[in-house]
């Protein structure tokens, strides 16, 4: 009888399974999911923070009045689909909010406003364009998988067509399976 109860209990325990209830996490914390097959939110934060630190030391971002920046194309050359503004916002938000740059909006509303001002209006022109590329490199050794994501950004002077700042940041993750935390 006891053996039957024990067997039933074990079977029930297996059926119930091991699960962790969903909970809110600090997006800048250390216990986020680390995936080997995709770029995680903390990867954008890490790359963006490193890029921001490097970019803020560029002489062109230390001038007054602040330069007018236009966002160029960020090519996603990885196998994963994501919005590249996840990276760009890590740079533009602190730079705009601290007054280090003026960001030229290029949406329909901004274009309409510029048209309404006409030729005599004080329409700001982009002095700088931020462009870049995100690449991916994968390698395996037995069951160990490694994924590297390469973030490349360049700040181009529009008038002269030369790069005033360029930086590369590589985020590498290695393991046999996805995990939580780092």
């Amino acid at each position: 009888m006891n053996r039957l109860i024990l067997s039933l209990s074990t079977a029930l325990l297996v059926l119930v399974g091991c699960g962790t209830p969903a909970a809110y996490k600090d997006p800048n914390g250390r216990d986020l999911v680390v995936s080997l097959d995709q770029v995680n939110i903390q990867d954008f934060a890490s790359a963006g923070a490193a890029m921001l630190q490097s970019m803020s030391n560029a002489p062109v971002l230390n001038q007054q009045p602040p330069a007018v920046l236009k966002l160029g194309t960020i090519t996603n050359d990885t196998t994963v689909n994501f919005d590249t503004s996840l990276l760009l916002s890590k740079l533009t938000v602190p730079l705009v909010n601290s007054g280090r740059i003026v960001l030229l909006e290029s949406d329909m509303a901004a274009d309409a406003a510029r048209q309404a001002q006409g030729a005599e209006g004080q329409v700001p022109q982009a002095q700088l364009v931020l462009k870049g590329k995100i690449l991916e490199d994968r390698a395996n050794a037995g069951s160990t998988r490694q994924a590297s994501y390469v973030f490349q950004l360049t700040l181009v002077d529009v008038k002269r067509g030369v790069a005033l700042w360029t930086e590369e940041k590589i985020v590498t993750k290695q393991g046999t399976k996805n995990t939580v935390g780092f």
Binding site: N28, A45, S46, A49, Q53, S56, L95
Partner: peptide, 23 residues
């Protein structure tokens, strides 16, 4: 900077960590 930068240092290794203010 709210997120954590991870530094992996070998035994005895020196590292210079730089931070620049925006304001």
């Amino acid at each position: 900077q709210r997120n954590w930068d991870t530094l992996q240092l070998e035994p005895g290794a020196l590292h210079t960590y730089t931070a620049t203010a925006l304001r």
